[in-house]
Design a protein around this nucleic acid. Sequence first.
DNA 1: CCTCGGTGCACAATCGATGTTGCAAACATT
DNA 2: AATGTTTGCAACATCGATTGTGCACCGAGG
Lengths: 380, 380
Amino acid sequence: MLQTFVLFLHSVNTSVGAVGPNESGCGNAVKKNQKETIYDIAAKAGASASTVSAALNGTWEKRRISRATAERIIAIAREQGYSINLQARALRTSRSGLVALLVPEYNRFFSSIAQTFSDEVRARNQCPVIISTGRDTQKEHDTVTDLMSWSIDAIFFVGAVAPDELSRQCQSADIPHVFVDQPCDLAPSVVTDSRTGARILTREILSSMTHRGVRIGESPRDTIYFLGGDRRLPSTRNRVEGFSDAVYAHVGHLEPEQVIAETYDLDAATESIAALYRKMGGLPRGLFINSDSVFEGALRFLATLPEAELAECSMGCFDYEPLGQLLRFPVHMMRQRHKMLVQRAFTLLEDKSPPVTEMVQPELYPAPGSRDPEGRAFSR
Amino acid sequence: MLQTFVLFLHSVNTSVGAVGPNESGCGNAVKKNQKETIYDIAAKAGASASTVSAALNGTWEKRRISRATAERIIAIAREQGYSINLQARALRTSRSGLVALLVPEYNRFFSSIAQTFSDEVRARNQCPVIISTGRDTQKEHDTVTDLMSWSIDAIFFVGAVAPDELSRQCQSADIPHVFVDQPCDLAPSVVTDSRTGARILTREILSSMTHRGVRIGESPRDTIYFLGGDRRLPSTRNRVEGFSDAVYAHVGHLEPEQVIAETYDLDAATESIAALYRKMGGLPRGLFINSDSVFEGALRFLATLPEAELAECSMGCFDYEPLGQLLRFPVHMMRQRHKMLVQRAFTLLEDKSPPVTEMVQPELYPAPGSRDPEGRAFSR
DNA sequence: CCTCGGTGCACAATCGATGTTGCAAACATT
DNA sequence: AATGTTTGCAACATCGATTGTGCACCGAGG
């Protein structure tokens, strides 16, 4: 993960670790096992527990402990391999040093988020706790309840299903929190600008259809479909809107059936695209795929088709999948800036921001060999 | 994640949650914010704190509290939205209810492991803590030190770099632990049988080379290369051995330069394969890719080549990557059984197993259209 | 010599839950 | 009625760190 990962809240001094593989060279290694406390250290240093506490947690200057005493204590603690009991600290201070990240599941996007999150948390000398809630409202709620029992210091919600209720729950327990990739009216949020992103991606797909000579709207197959996601969720809704914007601007009309957005489920995606294929007797000429999991699901079906058929369909995926650019057919992708999302979220949290929603633009990764709207070939 | 996620250790009774969005309908919602304790509940129930404690944590029968009293207390706690302070419990009992998983990074394989791990932990009413240590010995050590401060109940190490030292560290603090995907002599371990797996995968690659008419060994390019991973790590070592076994059995000899295994780094993989290509004036006819990250790195270079060149190389990847089967060229894959790995690890831990190493066989996913050793076409 | 403002530290009260111990009352036994 | 034996619960010490308070001691100033 990151740097030294000192869990301790205050000063680096506290981390007096390095127990070493076993400093007792004596054959019958008497593990000085069970925990030493500040009282033990105090005894060995000829000081009081409170002095030891102050020395070790870095508050010794404020508490007017002499530098000499503090350093002596720190040295002893280090050599004894003392390790603080964080439950005791948390109980006393009612701050646990735990920061939670709730994600719907562990896919590529959320894993990236998790990685960045962990790094940031540990850079702050706190401990990241990452939990997935499977897009289930009840689990989200229960998880927060449980985190409260841990005196959690802050919670980051990613793609929460019921943000408002979660926010109320956190507020009632005074837990600082932010939402990522899913806006909430009641708390600060950082989201990808899905609507704009979807508009751009759709435009890209449409443009590549045009370049392939498709006359959009001429037949039912000569159009673009939106596949996957859950239209009850804002992110999907925004993407559908961006998609619609672009389609309207380019084509002038959009049939309801062109948007298939009931679920993020992988198998459902496989089935949807297969059904579409059967119904139309072939792939549509354009396809907007709503996320990497939907992408994977769709690919299960697409992989069964001959290449020639795939070549007839221009695709775009609202997510970045590195291997996606190496498929047997071109796919445009929108990459969410996960690092920026998380870092902005930290900023909002630390600034005790009011309930604003920050937008982060995703990046377009055009399919290799595709052309930009002006017709120049992209080079990546 | 999973089911109800009651963090509480003992009985379900303890979970008296469901604060509800706000049961105080009164306009000026006076958040009954700051925590209620068992003392408050005790006062309201006309009982003592110890009785409340017993009632709530399910030990009331043992403590000979009458059912009537217990149920009254539980009802009050529920209606007050009482939430236990787990730090206090952990301090008192010196069991935190936290179970940690240390992974090198968040890639697809480790994320799958993490998901299974989380589910299992939560099924046991404990709290999963997942931390990545970036394959850094020092970070591993420090992380364990910190986890000790949390009175962690158990640690799962996945792909640890220095297992022996970690095990000693855990032993000296009496922390139950297991190793996954990386054996340790001092503690129970569950690993993928890399050697056998690599042998099978290599055989598959060689056989597909043969079917393509390659006469192995005839020219420097008419052979198979091993790419990526860190030969200082047992998993890579075992894969190299399995690779060597198969090559020796099939070809009779193996040049040292056929094995490139210095690092898992993605960029290094890109560079390695590019260098190989330059040196030999083309791709080797066979390529064993050591992990999904190496795969991704290699693909960055491979994607720049014309398809005709890719078609000349038989590839195998020791990891499963769903999109890998949909590339413009066939790739055999070995899938590690992540779920089984984790579940076995739990079993070993719960049985307080001695330091044994359990092997789990990976599954071969042959490239679509490839043939098994007897020459029959695979059908998937 | 006596007070006064720093220093430098020890004491003791917390934080909230657990669990051992002990003590009433209720009931049973002879 | 006197003596066990349950039943049902309250008191209290405890886990280990933090922190408000107080009190010695020191040198300086009057």
